[in-house]
Amino acid sequence: MTRIEVTVDGSKVTDDVEPRMLLVQYLRETLGKTGTVVGCDTSNCGACTVHLDGRSVKSCNVLAVQASGHEVTTIEGLAATGGHADGQLHPVQEAFRECHGLQCGFCTPGMIMQAVDLLNENPSPTEEDVRLGMEGNLCRCTGYHNIVKSVLHAAGGAR
């Protein structure tokens, strides 16, 4: 067991974890942050995407111990840690709802976290930028049409 100290969605937490425990398992199983989900076992789907110190990572591809001393933001803390008032949505969350960028919603937490990172890096992306930037996140429901639209919509709002 290894002692870790992580800031997750703004709160400091301390736990003893097995060295092999993945960050996504730590979030879901230890902390009950079930908003972040697991869609594959080969780091292909992006459903588990969270932010580590503000940059998107696939949390199935990071060990919990690697997150020690760092800040993790999940879909559950996105709005609050972004300085949005209680009950308010992050603009990207709002854009996904506005543009029907989700159906079953399973890929959505990962999509939103990835989109936020993409827009932080490139606030005015083209459709091509969005399509290439979201390539690591799979969705089986939407055909991506409205996901791309959502991200462009959020970018428009931010400008």
Partner: peptide, 21 residues
């Protein structure tokens, strides 16, 4: 109409079977 389902899904308050403990 924007979907009623979305609020829980975009904020991570969803109830997937694997979430149940």
């Amino acid at each position: 109409r924007r979907r009623k389902e979305d609020q829980r899904l975009i904020t991570g308050r969803s109830r997937w079977t694997d979430n149940i403990t």
